[in-house]
Each structure stands twice: as structure tokens, then as C-alpha cells.
Amino acid sequence: MLPLPLAALVSLTITYKLEKASERFLVLIGPALSSLAEGCPWPCMPIIASLWAQKVKRWNDFLVFSASRTVFHHSSDAVVQRLKSCFTSTLGLSPSSIYSNGGVGALLGHVFGSHFSGGMSPVSPGILYLRVHRSIRDIMFMTEEIVSLLMSSVRDIASSVFSRQKLKTTKFGLLYGQVSLGAAMEHVKLAASLGASLVWLSGGLSLVQSLIKETLPSFISSHSPDHDRGEPEGIAAMLEGYALAYFVVLCGTFAWGVDSASLASKRRSKVLGSHLEFLASAVDGKISLGCNYATSRSYIVWFVSLMVGCTQKWVLDVDADVLKRLSYGLMRWNKEELAMALLGLGCVGAMSAAAELFIEIGA
């Protein structure tokens, strides 16, 4: 079942007598065979692994692990399942006792090796993804899957946190118990941080730019979340918007940095300008958004807030007219301070708009 050149190489190398003098050749040939087999049709690597495992017993774990990696090279579904396990383990949403506590320890803390009788120890989702992400042929679909998994995780967080709280009605509205909203937002930030890290790790600058220019506008325009999950009305939608904003800003900082001196800042101007033009059109009502109103509003408000608070140099890259339209939309949402702060960080062309806005607020 092996291609002839690969079969010939295996036949030659597997006959080597295991001596210290020849072991250095095995160190070179082993990784070469592994890389070659990964590019060949399924199941070349499992066949090679089974042959070599009989020859070099101490390499058994490595060979079994290498063979398991090849499925990610041939199956997009396997990649999606691996991404999902990264989210569930990090957030502690998995029923498995191994990952029930969540955090970075659950994501990266379990290495592979025969520490248990009868087989390998569990391989942590993050370690496995670090080893296999270079084998993924089509990375462009990754952004859609990561955003979808992020939104699903946020709804699970909202359902998990608020389902345990007894809601009380006061004259100020709903009271969500002891710091429930704060706890939920911390979990959401963790999920967004993981999502941004996965995007940057998987595709770097090109994938981040594809996310902001194409995937995110399409997602916001067409996304229709399921709200029948038991969480308080509007809370899950608000958290979704917050998660998206934190996720996108973090992706941008990975790709472009936060200052105006980096080489990547030249690319930032075009991509960020296009995205804020989309947001301004949404605020103006020129674009019909398919997602929940609370989600889109929360995303826009939090994205601008994070940009004003953390990446102020980005604002200089945006056209003054776009900043003006976005600021007037924020003012209609009773976010006058945020609107003024956005214009205050803009270029000289935004100063007149800031003065007009200040006069309108004073009036």
C-alpha cells in the first residue's frame, strides 16, 4: 500500500542493525520518513509506524503519536474536533475529569509518554494542536470555525454561570447574584484569548487580515444565535459581542502591534479602515445585520472602547469621516464620552467633528 519510493526507503532503513555507530543515521532518517509519509495518501504513516515500532521499541510513543497526526492532514472534521477540545478543556466545560478545572494547565499541561501500564498517557489538546497545525492543508476555513466555537463557548459560559444563580428583581432591574457577570466576563476573556492565539498560530498575519476583512463582517451580517438556552435575556448576546471585540482586538495586536512605527502598521491602515467603515455603515443603518441587536451593539461599543483604551495609535489610521459617522452613532446610543474620546484620538481632520459633537452635547 506504500508508494514505491517510500516503500524502498523503508525497506533499506529498517534493515539497519541497531548499534550506537549507526544510531545517528536513524535520528536523521526517522523524521525524514515521518515528514514524507505525512504527505502521502492515508494510511502510509500508520503503516510505517507499525513497522518501525517493531524495530525500535523505545520509539513506540513517538511513532504512535506521529501516526495519529496524519488524520489532521486529511480530515477537516478532525481539525474542528481538535479545536473544540481546546476550548472545552481550557474553559473547564468538558465532562472529563482530566480537564474539568480548565485553564492553561488543562490546555498544555499533559505531555505524552508511557506513564501508564497498557498504553500512552493522555495527550493534552493544546500540545497535540501545536504538533499538528502545520499539517493542515486548508487554513482559511479555520477563522469561521474558531469564531463559531468562540460563540458557542460564550453561550455555554452564560448558561453555566447564570443557571446556578437565583435571579432577583429589584427596582433597578435584574440582580445576578454575587459577581456572576464579572465571573462570566473573565471566562469570556479567556475564551477570546484562546481563539485569538489559535488564529495567530494557525495562519499568522494573512489569517488575521482575512478574519477582519471577510469572516467577521460576514458573520455579523448573517449570524443568528440560539437564545433558548436558559440564560437571562440579553446577557448571552451582550457577552457574545464582548467576546468578539476582545478576540478581534487581540488578533490585531498579534498581527500589527499597538504603535505606529511597525512595518505591519502599513497593512493595518487598510484592513482597520475597511472594518470601521463596515461598523460605521452598520451604525448608520446602511447595512442590515443578521445577528442579535444586543450582540452587534455590544461588539461595536466594546471594540471602540478597547481601541480607545488599549490601541490608541490605531485610531490615527482611520479616515476622519468614518470616525465622525461612528462617533455620531455612539452618541445616539448615549455613549457620548466614548464618542468624544474616539474623535479626540483621531487625526486633525477629526477635530472639527469633535468640536461639533461637543457643541451638540453642551446644547
Rank of each mutant, 00 (worst) to 15 (best):
I127F: 10
H133F: 09
T143F: 06
G126L: 02
G109R: 07
M142S: 10
H115M: 12
S121R: 07
S121D: 09
S117M: 12
I139W: 02
T143L: 05
D138E: 08
R137D: 03
R134E: 11
G118C: 13
M140V: 14
I139M: 01
F116M: 06
G118F: 15
F112N: 10
S114M: 12
L107W: 14
I127H: 05
S121Y: 12
I127W: 03
R134H: 15
G119S: 15
M140P: 05
R134N: 15
V123L: 10
R131Y: 02
G109N: 05
R137I: 03
L107N: 11
M142Y: 15
F141H: 04
D138H: 06
S121E: 06
H115P: 03
G105Y: 00
S121G: 10
H133G: 00
I139H: 00
I136S: 01
S124G: 13
G119F: 15
I127M: 05
L108Y: 15
S135Y: 09
S124D: 06
F112G: 07
M140R: 05
M140C: 11
V111T: 15
A106M: 13
S124P: 15
P122M: 05
I136Q: 03
S117K: 11
L128W: 05
S124K: 04
I139Y: 01
V132K: 02
T143C: 13
R137H: 05
G118M: 14
V123Y: 06
M142Q: 06
S135A: 06
G119I: 14
D138I: 01
G105F: 11
H133I: 04
L108G: 07
S135I: 09
M142L: 14
M142K: 10
V111E: 11
G113M: 07
G105Q: 03
F112L: 08
Y129V: 02
R137W: 04
H110F: 15
G109L: 08
Y129N: 02
I127C: 09
I127N: 04
G105E: 06
L128T: 00
D138Y: 05
R131S: 03
H110M: 14
I139A: 01
V123C: 10
M140D: 14
V132M: 01
H133S: 08
F141K: 06
P122C: 07
I136M: 03
A106Y: 09
M142T: 11
H110W: 11
I136K: 02
P125C: 11
P125Y: 05
A106I: 10
S117D: 11
F116R: 08
V132P: 02
H110C: 10
T143P: 07
P125S: 12
M120K: 00
G105C: 08
A106V: 09
I127T: 09
T143Q: 07
S121C: 11
M120P: 10
M120H: 06
D138R: 03
G113Q: 07
F112R: 03
S121L: 08
S114I: 12
L107Y: 13
